[in-house]
Simulated scan of single mutants.
Amino acid sequence: MAHLTVTVPENSQNILGTVTINAPLEKVFEAYTKEELFASWWCRGNSMKVYDFDCQDGGSWHIAEQSEDGNEYEFRGCFHEVAPHERIVQTFEFLGMPERGHVMLEKAEFVAIDEHTTEIRTHSTAMSQSDRDGMVASGMESGWRQSVEALGKLLEADD
């Protein structure tokens, strides 16, 4: 079972998250970096259109979630570093904002707790504290939790 803990430090532009999942590090990293796996869990397990997914240093991604309420939500970013089985550094932007440029820089570190358990430690930094607070107020934690649960279901079914 995948578990998410989110911390939103006061007077900060950061969001910190820790995901603990009962799956080997290699499988978890692959679920983040292989398009067909990523597309099956990242948008809360909802249907996703993938416009671009080039998961390598300097690559980019652009996806659209097809939500249960019939709406479409687009996101995009750039991969700054993809260090196999160690970390991913990327940007994240929700394209539904009235103006562009509300970008977050995200670092996800992948740590093998044991051969069957992986921890993903994320550090996301917004352009401003108000951008960070807007992200939190948007329901970000609930959506993230649903995505983590979909990731758990994907990887547990694979065992």
Rank of each mutant, 00 (worst) to 15 (best):
E72V: 13
R76T: 08
G134I: 09
G143L: 01
F53V: 05
E109L: 11
G96H: 05
T118W: 07
E72S: 10
M97R: 04
I63E: 02
G143M: 03
R100V: 14
A64Q: 10
P98T: 01
R145P: 04
F79D: 01
H116V: 11
L151G: 01
V136A: 03
E109V: 15
A150M: 07
D69N: 07
D54G: 03
H102G: 12
G58Y: 04
G96T: 10
E68D: 15
L105N: 11
V136T: 00
L151K: 00
Y51E: 12
Q56D: 02
Q56S: 13
F79P: 06
H116L: 08
V82W: 03
C78N: 15
A126N: 02
S147C: 01
E93N: 02
G143V: 00
V111E: 09
D69M: 10
E93I: 07
E115A: 15
G59K: 09
R121A: 08
H62M: 05
L151Y: 00
M48K: 04
E115T: 15
Y73H: 15
F79E: 03
F53P: 03
M48E: 04
D57Y: 05
E109Y: 13
G139Q: 01
Q90G: 03
S67V: 11
S142A: 12
E72G: 00
I88H: 06
V82Q: 07
H102N: 13
R87L: 13
P98S: 00
D114E: 02
R132Y: 02
S147F: 02
F53R: 03
A83D: 10
D57H: 07
A83S: 14
Y51T: 11
G139N: 03
E106T: 14
A137T: 06
C78R: 15
D54C: 06
D133K: 02
A108W: 12
H102D: 10
